[in-house]
Structure formats: C-alpha cells, structure tokens
C-alpha cells in the first residue's frame, strides 16, 4: 500500500506531500501520523503541501483533523507551502481551516513550531 513518508527531525515530524492525494492515502497518513506522534513523543508536526496543486474538502478535512488530533496529543501542527491558487480555491469552497496554523514555507514553519513548543 502506498504511504506518505513521515520524517523525524529532532522533536518534530516532517510530512512532505508530493503525490496526488486520494482519500485512502489521506486516511492512512492520519493514522500513521497519530501513531508516530505517540511513539516518538514528537512536540510538533510540519506538513508541507508545496507540491499539492489542489486541496479539496476531503484533504482539507484531513489537515484539520490531523491538527486537532495532534493538539490533543500535545503536539502543534503547522501547515506550510500552500500555493496562492489553492488558498483562493479553498476559501471559495468554504473551507477556512480555522484550527490550523500556517506559515509560508518550511523555514518559517519550523521557526513557528519552535516558538510554540518553547512557550
């Protein structure tokens, strides 16, 4: 079964989505990530969607769920790399992702995570 790799960087987990998402893949990522947070006691999760040229309501919901789940497990989530056209479309679709922290790129996302975790 196809899986999205989850990399560990210190206290953080890094997920770079580089394939065309389909529903089963999104659900698998959700499960894998929860399991990894629990196993590694990660304090933060960085999800990089630079390569995603589309986010629909299903993927949007997955991102929202991951963010809520990790918060419950004492980890912060930051979403980075959303393309402008994707952002415009998401808002028009009606998906505002209120519970999800975002940053423009991986570097800023990492800084944000570090700040959040230190506080």
């Amino acid at each position: 079964m196809e899986r999205i790799p989850i990399l560990k960087m210190g206290d953080f987990l890094l997920v770079t989505i580089q394939v065309d998402m389909y529903d089963q893949l999104a659900l698998t990522l959700q499960d894998d990530l929860t399991e990894r947070i629990s196993r590694t006691s990660a304090r933060g999760v960085l999800i990089d969607i630079t390569a995603l040229d589309m986010v629909d309501s299903f993927i949007g919901r997955m991102i929202d769920t991951i963010s809520s789940l990790s918060k419950i497990m004492d980890a912060e989530t930051v979403l980075v790399g959303m393309q402008p056209a994707v952002a415009i479309t998401l808002v028009e679709l009606g998906l505002y992702l209120p519970g999800v922290s975002t940053a423009l790129d991986v570097e800023r996302g990492m800084k944000l995570l570090e700040q959040r975790v230190r506080l």
Partner: peptide
C-alpha cells in the same frame, strides 16, 4: 488561468468523489 484551472480541478474532485 491558474486560479480558474485550480477551481475547476477542485470542483471535479468533489463531484467525481
């Protein structure tokens, strides 16, 4: 245009699902 294309592709994703 890219924004219009992205909107159309996203609509396709919702409707095809």
């Amino acid at each position: 245009r890219l924004v219009d294309l992205t909107k159309m592709v996203t609509a396709v994703s919702e409707l095809a699902r």
